[in-house]
C-alpha cells in the first residue's frame, strides 16, 4: 500500500514536469498544426546549457532554467525564422522532416561541444528527501514539479491575459479574422513558436537534475512528448496535462512493479496502443472541421 502511494506520488511529480515539457509542443501544434520533432532536442539543449552553467558557476540548476527561458525563446525565434516558416511556405509536409533534421543536427553539435558522456546536474539537495510518515518525497522531484506547475500557470496567464497571448489564440482560430483586426500574423506565429521553445528551458533544467542525458537523449524525450500529446488528443492543453500525469504514473508503476528496464518502453507502447485503439486520444478531443458549410 505504501509502495503504491509512494509510486503514485512519484508518478504525479514526474507528470507535472512532463506537462511543462510537452506544453510547448502542444502550443505549436494547436496553433500552427506543425509537429515539431525538434522539441526533444530543444529540451536536451536546455539541459546541456543548465548542466554546463551549473558546472561552471554552481548556481542552482532549476534557477538557471528560469534564466535560460530567454535564451530558449531566442533559439525558438531563430529556428522559426530560418527553418520552420520557410519550409511551411515551400512544402508544409516537409516541416516534420526539417524539424527532425534540426534535432539530429543539434545532437551533432552538442556532441561536438560536450561529447557523448552521460551528464546530470546534481545540486546539493539532489539526494535528499522529505519524509511524510512512510512516504518519501525527493526534494529534486518536488522542486522541479512545483516550478513546472508554476511555469504552466504563467504560460496560461500569458495566453489568457496578455495582448500577445490573445493574438496567438486569435490566430489559432481564424487567421483571416486576426489579420483584419490588425494582427501581424507572421510575427505572432514567430512569437508563439518562440514561447513554445522557451518552455523547454525549465523543462530542460528539470531534466538535467532528474535524469542523466547524452546528446542522443532527444529521441527518448521526443518519444515521451509525442506519447503525452497522443494520449491527450493533439492540441489540447488539458488533455496533454492529463496525458503527462498518466505517462508519469505509468512509468513509475512499471518501474515499481515490473522492471525499470521497461520504463523507457512505456511511452512507445502507449503511442502504438492509443493510435490503434483510440486515435483521437483518451479524452476524445475533437479535431475542428475547418470546412465551409456551404
Amino acid at each position: 500500500m505504501t509502495l503504491l502511494a509512494q509510486t503514485l506520488i512519484f508518478g504525479l511529480l514526474t507528470g507535472g514536469v512532463y506537462a511543462l515539457m510537452s506544453s510547448g509542443f502542444t502550443l505549436t501544434f494547436g496553433v500552427m498544426r506543425v509537429i515539431n520533432l525538434a522539441h526533444g532536442a530543444l529540451l536536451i539543449v536546455a539541459a546541456f546549457f543548465t548542466w554546463w552553467l551549473w558546472d561552471r558557476t554552481g548556481i542552482d540548476p532549476l534557477l538557471l532554467g528560469l534564466g535560460l527561458t530567454v535564451v530558449m525563446y531566442g533559439i525558438g525565434w531563430v529556428l522559426y525564422k530560418t527553418v520552420i516558416a520557410r519550409v511551411q511556405r515551400i512544402d508544409p509536409e516537409l516541416t516534420l522532416v526539417a524539424s527532425f533534421g534540426v534535432a539530429v543536427a543539434a545532437s551533432g553539435v552538442l556532441s561536438l561541444i560536450w561529447g557523448t558522456e552521460a551528464r546530470a546536474a546534481t545540486p546539493s539537495y539532489f539526494n535528499t528527501s522529505i519524509s511524510l510518515g512512510e512516504i518519501v518525497i525527493p526534494r529534486a522531484q518536488l522542486y522541479a514539479c512545483v516550478g513546472a506547475v508554476l511555469l504552466l500557470a504563467a504560460l496560461y496567464a500569458l495566453l489568457r491575459g496578455t495582448f500577445v497571448g490573445r493574438s496567438i489564440r486569435a490566430c489559432a482560430t481564424s487567421r483571416n479574422g486576426a489579420a483584419l483586426v490588425g494582427i501581424d500574423v507572421e510575427r505572432t506565429m514567430a512569437q508563439m513558436f518562440a514561447i513554445g521553445a522557451a518552455t523547454t528551458a525549465f523543462g530542460g533544467a528539470a531534466l538535467a537534475v532528474l535524469y542523466q542525458f547524452v546528446p542522443d537523449s532527444h529521441y527518448v524525450w521526443i518519444g515521451r512528448v509525442l506519447c503525452i500529446v497522443v494520449l491527450g488528443g493533439f492540441g489540447s492543453f488539458a488533455g496533454a496535462a492529463a496525458g503527462a500525469v498518466i505517462l508519469g504514473i505509468g512509468e513509475a508503476l512499471t518501474a515499481a512493479y515490473w522492471d525499470t528496464r521497461w520504463t523507457t518502453a512505456v511511452p512507445y507502447l502507449l503511442i502504438i496502443a492509443i493510435l490503434i485503439l483510440r486515435p483521437q486520444g483518451l479524452f476524445g478531443a475533437r479535431h475542428r472541421l475547418e470546412g465551409a458549410t456551404t
Binding site: R166, R169, A170, A172, T173, S174, N176, G177, A178, L180, A292
Partner: peptide, 11 residues
C-alpha cells in the same frame, strides 16, 4: 468585419 467565421470562437 470579416465574413462569417472571423470571430475568435475559442476566446
Amino acid at each position: 468585419v470579416p465574413q462569417a467565421g472571423g470571430l475568435f470562437g475559442d476566446l
